[in-house]
Amino acid sequence: MDQLYMLRAFVAAARYQSFSKGCRIAERDHASVSKAIAKLEGCIQTRVLLRTTRSVSLTEAAQTLLSELLPFCSKNSTKRIAALRARVKSTVESCG
Rank of each mutant, 00 (worst) to 15 (best):
C43E: 15
V56N: 06
K75C: 07
S94P: 01
K89T: 13
I44Q: 01
R51V: 11
S32M: 07
G96Y: 10
L84E: 14
S77I: 04
A38W: 11
T53I: 09
K35F: 06
E27R: 12
Q17N: 15
M6F: 01
S67R: 09
L66A: 01
M6L: 00
E60Q: 05
R8M: 05
L65I: 12
E93W: 03
A14M: 01
M1F: 06
V11E: 11
Q3N: 12
A36R: 15
Y5T: 10
S94I: 03
K21L: 15
E41Y: 02
A9Q: 03
E93T: 08
L69D: 09
P71V: 02
E68L: 14
C23Q: 00
Q63N: 06
L58K: 14
C23S: 01
E60D: 09
A36W: 06
A26L: 10
S90M: 08
I81N: 05
E27T: 01
E60I: 00
E41F: 01
L50I: 07
R80N: 04
R54L: 03
K89G: 11
C23M: 03
A61W: 00
K89A: 14
E68A: 13
L65C: 05
R28M: 05
L4H: 14
A12P: 08
L69N: 05
R54T: 11
